[in-house]
Design a binder for these strands. Sequence first.
DNA 1: TATTGTTATACTCTATAACTATA
DNA 2: TATAGTTATAGAGTATAACAATA
Lengths: 140, 140
Amino acid sequence: MRRTIDLPFADFPGYRLKLAAGKATNGLSKLLSEFDLRVSEAMILLFIEANPACLQSEIGRALNIANPNLTPILSRLETSELVFRQPIDGRSNGLHLSRNGAPLVKKMHAQMQAYENQILEQLPPHLRDPFNEALEILAS
Amino acid sequence: MRRTIDLPFADFPGYRLKLAAGKATNGLSKLLSEFDLRVSEAMILLFIEANPACLQSEIGRALNIANPNLTPILSRLETSELVFRQPIDGRSNGLHLSRNGAPLVKKMHAQMQAYENQILEQLPPHLRDPFNEALEILAS
DNA sequence: TATTGTTATACTCTATAACTATA
DNA sequence: TATAGTTATAGAGTATAACAATA
């Protein structure tokens, strides 16, 4: 008989949030690996899709990514020809999806939306609104 | 007037879970910095407190930490004299809180518990049970 | 003076392969 | 043959300081 193990933090809301978030992120990573994208890259692509001509600094503020960490990510997306930079003035560039990038992001967006819907559909219907309300409070 | 920014993923449950989990973890990190501990170290200490003489491999399975990553963490906790290893047989050691470690962990445990209670108390009472139920489903 | 963007650097967490020693 | 533990290594996320160029 196996020794009993105690998990003293099993009921900590923070711990359970982290487990749930990790599970969601892992599933998303798997989905995105078919597009050869990481989660951070996919979020950035969705942001550019929704906000054409946005600045790198706007992405950083919206997604809470520090500017020094954004530079290499955008360089990769530019190298893989999903995104291009269009000079606005001497120091800033508007970011756009390329002709290759736009349809790929559209397809990826649809799959991400379906995946996120599945997360919520794991819950019985009567828990969905309360769960969203709770997350709204805890995430703000 | 500032340009309008669209956040196409603002309603993704996975994204909001990650935000909420991140906020909880940041607060916990801040609390633990007063003990000069990181979150992973604190979890391990709670586990040893609840399961004296546990093995490193048991910690790894319970907390989902790969064995190679556990070795340096436990070495640090041993160096800072919070934990000691007691040989069980030729290949495994039972882990214990030291005389210094036990009271410190007890104090830290109480503060962590209070912090986690505060997270739930941010929610209006009628959302707490549904939120816990939902997390139970999504984290499993 | 504040903002945009870059480089360099470092720390944490996570992941895998290869290994020793023991049961 | 399976398990406990270690070492080395690498990827990804995150953080800060210092800097150049521009508004």
